[in-house]
């Protein structure tokens, strides 16, 4: 079985500058949900169910560091679609479709959302474009019937839901699927020898223009600073008399 894992390079959500106008200037990391997707692919291979894991990312040469990190985790080879434009999920999904058609994986595992744009769209759009089954917000994956089907548990607003998908299919990850491993030194050394293929949109045969434009970015209004109360009694009095909520 061949697994394709799309991943995005995003500003580090643990970095202090993540929350602010300068987010794009902060250190980049693999989108945490995509890291979970990579980890899951590695575990599937480790249990003998996959033979190849291919990573794909769309971005400028500056994302190479995240590609190395993915390879160091254990991804076999990587493709970078060289595109420095500000892409929207509409365009990303259409580029990924071309990569899927070229690579013909049995399953695509990817993050449910990119933590910078928080769109939560690409996996579902990609599934729709390909006409493939999808399981979103997944917290467990099991392959059945000689890997012709996947049984996935999904985290929903109401609890958990189990669905089965005929393969090939798209699976998007939620936080509880696994805890990604750290990059090891031998991993980093091995990563240096792994191939990174750089292709343009033209070379994969896709011509797409984003349809979404960000006109402006601004901080939301700040909540006024909090009042410290000294006791349970004082808190209750405030909630009753000042806030009038209880």
């Amino acid at each position: 079985m061949k697994i394709l894992v799309p991943f995005k390079s995003v500003p580090d959500p643990n970095d202090a500058t993540f929350a602010g106008e300068a987010a794009s200037a902060s250190k980049s990391v693999i989108n945490p949900f995509d890291e979970i997707a990579i980890e899951e692919a590695l575990r599937i291979r480790e249990r003998g169910e996959a033979t190849e894991i291919v990573g794909v990312t769309i971005g400028a040469p500056s994302v190479d560091e995240q590609i190395r990190a993915a390879l160091a985790m254990g991804v076999d080879r990587a493709i970078r679609i060289d595109d420095a434009r500000a892409l929207d999920p509409y365009a990303v999904a259409r580029i990924l479709r071309a990569v899927v058609e070229k690579e013909a994986p049995h399953v695509v595992i990817m993050g449910k959302q990119a933590v910078d744009d928080d769109s939560n769209q690409v996996g579902q759009i990609l599934a729709g474009l390909l006409g493939w089954p999808q399981a979103t917000f997944v917290s467990s994956i099991e392959f059945l019937d000689n890997k012709t089907r996947a049984r996935c548990t999904r985290e929903t607003d109401a609890g958990l839901e189990v669905v089965e998908l005929d393969l090939p299919a798209i699976i998007t990850t939620d936080l509880r699927l696994n805890e990604p491993r750290y990059v090891s030194l031998p991993g980093l050394i091995r990563a240096r020898r792994k191939p990174i293929e750089v292709l343009t949109c033209d070379q994969v045969g896709v011509n797409v223009r984003p349809l979404t434009t960000v006109l402006a970015v601004a901080r939301p209004p700040k909540r006024p600073a909090g009042t410290r109360v000294e006791s349970v009694e004082e808190l209750i009095t405030k909630l009753k008399q000042e806030a009038k909520v209880i």
Binding site: Y90, Q121, Q124, T212
Partner: peptide, 23 residues
């Protein structure tokens, strides 16, 4: 926005060749 619409609407957007804005 809910897990229901986040699951289904982007897929519908793909079938309609339409862009989508979340949240």
């Amino acid at each position: 926005s809910s897990t229901f619409s986040k699951d289904i609407l982007p897929r519908a957007a793909a079938l309609l060749d339409a862009p989508m804005v979340t949240d």
